[in-house]
Amino acid sequence: MATLQLLRGAEMLKQGAEGRVYRAEFLGKPAVIKQRFPKRYRHPELDEKLTHRRTMQEVRSIARCRRAGISTPVVYFVDYSCSCIFLEEIVDSQTVRDFIASARRSSSRSDQELQRLAELTGRILAKMHDEDVIHGDLTTSNMLLRRSADSSELELVLIDFGLSYISALAEDKGVDLYVLEKAFLSTHPNTEPLFQQLLGSYSASSKKSSAVIKKLEEVRLRGRKRSMVG
């Protein structure tokens, strides 16, 4: 109940697909609170099951990624009674989506930056998959970029692990990349070469990538086979 009271006074940042995101302070640190409020459109039993599972998976996968040295927000506190997760606020960051959009608008120096971004993203995703973490909802909105404090190097921070799970199957990793590919190319038209670069970097970084890329090709074909009538 204390959490909900806290939310009442907090500033709502946005209403995402999974829930509402608020800005708050947690023991003096800037934090965001992600609240999975009940979705009234779905059956209460289904809603409770999904909400609980996703809150748990999000926290678990974040912990697993952080142990492997992959940047994600720190989990400060979880309140299962209202499905709220208190997370570190990633300050001075922008989504990869906005980064790509603005880099493509300004023609100068952008190509090189985009290539560096694709290379970095491929490398981080390979690392995540090598830990058997399947993100489940990879889009350019679910990746943040920030300049690390000590250098001007870009750092990629993965967020929104609500649909994530643990699996070692190449099929699951292939579908994970397929989901990203479609979100990437539909959000950023005409960026096929950039996505190829991302996959190239993924392949070079992971020992198990050849099976995953083979599955990705299989999944793409499944999509193509669908008839466009009816």
């Binding site: 479609k182 009538v229 009816g230």
Partner: peptide, 28 residues
Amino acid sequence: VSGGNTQVIAYSQRRYRIFGETIDIAVG
């Protein structure tokens, strides 16, 4: 959503772009 298709589509830059779809059979 129909017997042969399940797609989530949004318009941008002169195309109806497919953001999500079924990866196997259609909902119908």
